[in-house]
Amino acid sequence: MSDVFIQSIVVFVLASFVGFEVIRRVPPTLHTPLMSGANAISGITIVGAVIAAATGTGWVAGVLGFLAVTFAMINVVGGFLVTDRMLEMFKKLPGPRK
């Protein structure tokens, strides 16, 4: 295995632990927005999609790249917007219950 790959595995494992720790014990109230927000973050694949679309040659690569960017953008833009819409409504409340 190449050093770069091993380094990437290290990053992957550490980031996973951060994900586990950060999410521990979330009130059920926030499960829906949290799922929605996390879902939007998984749209980070937009970065890969842009690279694939920009560097691809030939029509097959073009179609795949276009679809990848389109799908990822739907995920990113829609995901963050809809999460914001949900959370906007929470803001109007007097504050979290203790």
């Binding site: 980031a15 632990f17 994900g19 799922m35």
Partner: peptide, 17 residues
């Protein structure tokens, strides 16, 4: 690395949920 970090975070967070 951006995909790896973002993806791993969501993968783990989603699993906990």
């Amino acid at each position: 690395q951006a995909l790896i970090v973002g993806g791993a975070l969501v993968g783990a967070a989603g699993m906990i949920l």
